[in-house]
Write a protein that binds this DNA or RNA. Structure first.
Lengths: 205, 205, 205, 205
DNA sequence: AATGAATGAGATTTCATTCAT
DNA sequence: AATGAATGAAATCTCATTCAT
């Protein structure tokens, strides 16, 4: 039993190493320009070994996005659930997401890029799994917004549409960020974005 | 003389046909998954013919983006220059862009997707030409915002950063739109987005 | 009649222009790397026009070699026929060939390169026409040697084998010549080569 | 340890098989007309496999020439170093080279053909590596000649120029040889060539 | 379970030749 | 007779995946 557990632990460790290596390469080169050979080298495994952990390149890519997104959502959930008061959940959501991406820059690139392309992908399998990921993400944002909106002095907006607007606002910094100095944190942009958004959705007076 | 002019006209026509065909395929599959063979088939030319008009696949792709972007910017410029009154230019910009994308759905997909990926491209040549395109676009948005902000009751925000925020807001609908019914127009979302943005940037009271 | 003759003259002129242009390009790039497009540009004709004068690329190439070789042989013949005295024909042959190549550097490159490759060419048609050219050349050299050998104090060597030896000797400078200054003439090497050869074949004492 | 050594051995074997197959095809068709597909078929490997051993077509070609030339030079060196007596080194060199080419007919074709064309190659990379090969070869011949000339009753000739003459003499048989019966050996021509050359360079009396 | 050499389908690009004008 | 745009076959090279060790 204990022995099996150790095996299981080792399996997970190696799998995670591969995911991390893949994250580095995919984020730097994009899906198509990344080769299995390079991921293998980065992970310090042989090429063939990758296929013991993942069905293929696409599966590795999707698994990476799914698992990291789950992590992101778990983190957002935990942070947001603490917040109380009108607009506080949204404020908290923005801060949390920025903070998460600061610590996961590589994943950030993949997440945003893919979010803007996956819909019109030819590969149906790829589309389906990705679709689920982003639906879950948007659903969570929409729910957060809904909770906040109803309790505060906000306009009566469609939460789902508003969620897209907020997501777009957050993503917008993707284009500038890679250029800016490595030291600059997304987190510091949170107040700027928060203010625009909250004012944007508040009730007219 | 007349003959030369006709040749030139025919050349332009064929070139435009190729660009349009390329637009369809690139928008459906993305750059890497698109093959020259498919563009050729779509354009009803032989593969080799494409190389009489463009240096290669990348050149075709970039030319498409550059020329369509110029068209977009020209259109935006024309529309925006008519507007007067506080916030009117921004309102007009949003409406114009949405209208343009309604008529150029395929290009829209390419434009937005590329805008979110080009920064970390490997190919330096591709990056350079794209960079110029998006700089020009953001510059225009920033200038429009600046003009409007100073004349209205708006907060004193950095125009460039605000431009990114607005661009992100507009782009945000890319993820939903392809799914929604073909009849639904981006143009109809303009008021919703405009309101969020204008309120978001106005002076606190 | 006169009109036809003028047409004929013009035809020949244009044909010669193409040959000369082809000579320049073929000598610079070799057969395979040369494109019809480049020959056309160099000759200031359209690509299609070349096909009114030659059946295709290979035909153009072979025609060029054949006609220039005829010219070379005619020249050698004329020069050598003047010579009298033991070894004089050979001496004269070497001088004449070097002189001709000094004036036809482009053709020289083609001639020597092709001489060393044609035998194992895949294209049978090409081989046959080239074979004839070089046989004629070697035949002439062999005949010249034979004439000379029998009248002088020379060993009784197989003229054909000796002709190959002489041809090899002459060609040997091809590798150095393109490197040496443009001003340096092959003609100046004639005495050096002549001496080696004549001594090499004379009777032992 | 033993395992690694075996892998290494197998690698070398396969690499050599490819080189040999390439030698056959290149010698029969020349560089440009040879396709990787044909080399692969000849070597009984898949096309892609060739690229595990060589960077590309040119690299394969140059590697072949470089390695075979090294073999040739090593062999010549060994043979010539044994010779003593005036003219003996040169006699030995000619015999050795002819003997080597008898056993490496395919390589012989490539070596001679390339030697006569490489100078005006477009590809700079190809030129550079080849240049080195032929410089080394000529240097060796020149040194051999120099050693011999100074000890014998020979004229005071420039060793380098004389080396070119000798190389030309040896190469001259390339044109006849492929035609002649397979049984005929270059080696048998050695005395004929040796005599012409040695007499050609000896002191006048 | 891990390896990495071999595979071969598939992509881009070139260019001799044709043919409508 | 001259043109040059269109053609499409053919060549090089890449890389995800397999499989014998």
């Amino acid at each position: 039993m204990a022995k099996l557990a150790r095996k299981e632990r080792e399996y997970r460790t190696r799998r995670a190493e591969i995911i991390t290596a893949a994250e580095r390469v995919f984020s730097a080169k994009g899906f198509d320009k990344t080769t299995m050979e390079e991921i293998a080298r980065e992970a310090e495994f042989a090429e063939g070994t990758l296929y013991n952990f993942f069905k293929g390149k696409i599966d590795l890519y999707l698994s990476l996005i799914e698992e990291k997104s789950e992590e992101l959502l778990g983190y957002l959930h935990k942070q947001v659930s603490k917040a109380v008061g009108a607009g506080e959940k949204i404020r908290c959501l923005i801060k949390a997401q920025m903070g998460f991406f600061d610590k996961n820059r590589n994943f950030f690139k993949i997440f945003v890029r893919e979010r803007n392309s996956f819909e019109w992908m030819a590969q149906k399998d790829r589309t389906k799994r990705l679709s689920k990921v982003y639906q879950t993400y948007i659903d969570f944002v929409a729910r957060t917004i809904k909770d906040d909106l109803k309790r505060g002095e906000f306009r009566n907006l469609n939460p789902r549409e508003t969620a897209y607007a907020l997501a777009g606002l957050l993503n917008s910094f993707v284009c500038r960020w890679p250029k800016s100095s490595k030291k600059e944190r997304l987190f510091d942009q949170a107040p700027f974005l928060t203010e625009i958004f909250l004012k944007g959705v508040q009730k007219s007076r």
